[in-house]
Amino acid sequence: MYLGVDIGSSSSKAVILDEGGNIAGQAVINIGTGSRGPQKVIEEALSQAGIERTQIARTVVTGYGRMTFEGADKQITEISCHAKGVSAVAPDARTIIDIGGQDAKVISIDELGNVKNFVMNEKCAAGTGRFLEVMGRVLDTTIDGLSDMAERGVEGVTISSTCTVFAESEMISQLAAGKKIEDVALGAHKSIAQRVAGLVNRIGISPEVVLSGGVALNESVIRALEKELGYDIIRLKSPQTMGALGAAIYAMGLDKNGTEA
């Protein structure tokens, strides 16, 4: 059995593959690096697979917390792992947009799931999951709640600021000006889509386009992005675990010394 662990800034993910490369267990815990999240997510994935830790032949760790995780045979960046994981479930994917808790990445991949090029957001929360969290808080709801609200929005308000803090005060101003809460929520999604589209333009886009990471569970973001980019986006069943899946696939390719077989 092979274990892939993806320790992000706000969540931990684990995928276990059997000898045939089939998913035997997978789990997501919404706490990330620096917490007990990684340990708990591994326990959950092991229990789902019905195996003990000792039955894991190789482990690859990825994500923001990869440098401090002990007990892996190798650490590989989340960019390479997302590419590998997405390519396994969506072989036609050539552009991956990965929106995580604190960063956003656009990855251009080849037909084998190898990274051709990539770009990441800079030191700014605009265009990330954190942005939606902050906006949700202004409207007294969760990210999912924000998405539901946006579904009911008709005309999204314009939120022009690239800075999350200023965008937050813009939203408050829009509410104070009497704009409907649903339209403000839709505006927040449009805003994140515009930031991410800017990143996509830095690298160039080629179909198929896939959205991975926790934010990909949010249908309103996907729709806003499709509109902004002018491309359909493939919906994944489990967008959060693509990094961990990629890590597990890499683990399958390692020999007992932790080097590529």
């Binding site: 989340e78 990274v115 990441m120």
Partner: peptide, 9 residues
């Protein structure tokens, strides 16, 4: 992360 990914590429 960026430099490690580049090395991986």
């Amino acid at each position: 992360t960026r430099i490690q990914t580049f090395a991986e590429i």
